[in-house]
Each structure stands twice: as C-alpha cells, then as structure tokens.
C-alpha cells in the first residue's frame, strides 16, 4: 500500500478512485496528575511520554485509514492530511484522511 501526501504519483496513473478513507484516534491532551509532567513544568523541555503517545496515536489512525483503503480494494492512498480537534476539555481527536485509489505504472 503506497501512502503519500502528494496529490499524484510520478510515473503512475490513477485507474480508479475508490473514495475518501479515514482513520482516527482519540487521545488525552491533558497532563492530568502526571508527576513527571509536573517536574517538566519546572524545567521545561520535551514531554517524551506524551510524544510517544502522539506517535502511537498517529500510527493507529494511519493504520485504520489503510485498513479502510484495503477493504475498498485500493493499492494507494493519496493526499493524506492530518487534523486535530478538541473533543472535550481533556481529549483531542487525531484524524487522518486521504483518497484511496488504484494506480498502475505508466506504460
């Protein structure tokens, strides 16, 4: 499965457009009672635990999007974009969406 955020693939042509596919995860965007985060609020610096949470959320959202594309019979997802939106005060949704297509090598 080719996954790109460009609108086209050089050297390949789109044979069929399967449609919009998406994947999303909801994660906490609140530091809560995390003691380590409290210490970070003194020194500053990177919140490594939170970064890993975000990386895992993003991977899962992309995985779900690819699963949807596979179900439709596509072999590539083009023009992938990410969007973040607040659900409640403590949660944010990471939304990945793109266009699932069937591509072939240009003759």
């Amino acid at each position: 499965m080719i996954v790109v955020n460009t609108e086209y693939l050089p050297g390949m042509s789109i044979v069929e457009v399967k449609g919009l596919v998406q994947g999303s995860t909801v994660r906490a965007k609140h530091m809560g009672r995390d003691i380590a985060a409290g210490i970070k609020n003194l020194f500053g610096g990177e919140l490594k635990g939170y970064t890993e949470l975000l990386v895992e959320s993003r991977r899962e959202a992309v995985r779900r999007m690819i699963a949807q594309a596979t179900d439709l019979g596509a072999n590539a997802v083009l023009n992938v974009r990410f969007a973040t939106s607040s659900i409640t005060a403590g949660a944010a949704e990471l939304y990945a969406y793109g266009t699932a297509v069937v591509v072939v090598e240009q003759a």
Binding site: A37, L47, L54, V55, R58
Partner: peptide, 11 residues
C-alpha cells in the same frame, strides 16, 4: 514515495 512524519511535544 512514502509518507514521513515527525512529532515533538515541548512543556
């Protein structure tokens, strides 16, 4: 061609 991402969270 493939998607690459980078993420950082700073307190």
């Amino acid at each position: 061609l493939h998607l690459v991402t980078g993420v950082a969270v700073i307190a």
